[in-house]
């Protein structure tokens, strides 16, 4: 099994909200004082890949598109057990939108070739869109299965469970296919010391637009961002009064009852 996993470097979604700042001029956001991380769902996708590799053998290639990719961040999947890393690290490739990102990744997957399965997280923690996986599938004309919570591979067929609101669906498909992974797949493993040492020795392969047959400056774009802003939350919390926690609790209960909320 040759597996390609797409991951994204994002600002840390677990950082305190107070460190979240918007750079309005560039329609970009940052987490001040917090290092970027691999997108949480991307880590679930890496974990899903590693479990298949353990069961069936094979090789895991990790791909990531972005700029200023910190090596210690993007190498985390290698430290978890992936085998190679391809970075699409170029300003021109990040100038586009969800479509161009998926297109660049699809071209890189094609160039890499020799794959049975492509895994992505169900959505990135920054854009919260969940488009990249389905988009890669459509661009490459591959089967697309989303929201996996369990993946089994048997005789070049994939059988998986897809999370839905009332339980799950069992889906079967031919390979190669694109699968997006949900958190129900199970906790991503922590890198071991041995894994971290091994990852240090792996040099990422860097591909530029020309390597992908994409003309820099002609990255196709269908969507543009008009405005990025922080919704204002007026602090309008009514705090229950009281000398002790118990007294405050009683006063809260009375207040909520009087306001007919509970």
């Amino acid at each position: 099994m040759n597996i390609i996993v797409c991951v994204k470097q994002v600002i840390d979604p677990e950082a305190p909200p107070a460190s979240f700042k918007i750079d309005a001029a560039n329609n970009k956001a940052e987490m001040r004082g917090a290092a970027p991380v691999i997108d949480p769902y991307g880590e679930y996708a890496v974990e899903a890949g590693l479990r298949i590799k353990e069961a069936k053998g094979g090789r895991i290639t990790v791909m990531s598109l972005g700029v200023n990719l910190l090596r210690e961040v993007v190498k985390k999947p290698l430290a978890m057990g992936a085998d190679e890393l391809i970075l699409l690290e170029d300003e021109a490739l990040t100038k586009g939108d969800g479509w161009s990102t998926a297109y660049s990744l699809a071209m890189a997957i094609k160039k890499r070739g020799n794959f049975d399965l492509i895994l992505c997280g169900r959505e990135a923690s920054d854009t919260n869109a969940g488009q990249t996986g389905p988009a890669i599938a459509e661009i490459l004309g591959l089967p697309c299965i989303t929201l996996a919570r369990k993946i089994e591979i048997n005789d070049s067929k994939i059988k998986m469970e897809r999370v839905n609101s009332s339980g799950y669906e069992v889906i079967e498909s031919s390979l190669p296919a694109v699968v997006t992974v949900s958190n129900e797949i199970g906790q991503p493993r922590y890198p071991t010391i041995k894994g971290i040492m091994a990852a240090k020795k792996i040099e990422p392969v860097i591909w530029k637009p020309a390597d992908l047959g994409i003309e820099a400056g002609k990255v196709s774009q269908r969507t543009r961002i008009n405005k990025l802003f922080q919704p204002v939350h007026e602090a309008k919390c009514e705090f229950a009064a009281g000398e002790t926690p118990e007294e405050m609790a009683v006063n809260l209960a009375v207040k909520l009852r009087e306001a007919r909320i509970l």
């Binding site: 939350h233 919390c237 705090f239 229950a240 118990e246 609790a249 009683v250 909520l256 909320i261």
Partner: peptide, 22 residues
């Protein structure tokens, strides 16, 4: 910042009293 009503206190003391009163 999101709450309409709040209690500042240790939940271990607040919650039993709150549940009981309710």
């Amino acid at each position: 910042r999101y709450a309409r009503y709040g209690v500042v206190g240790d939940w271990k003391k607040v919650l039993p009293a709150f549940t009981q009163k309710l």
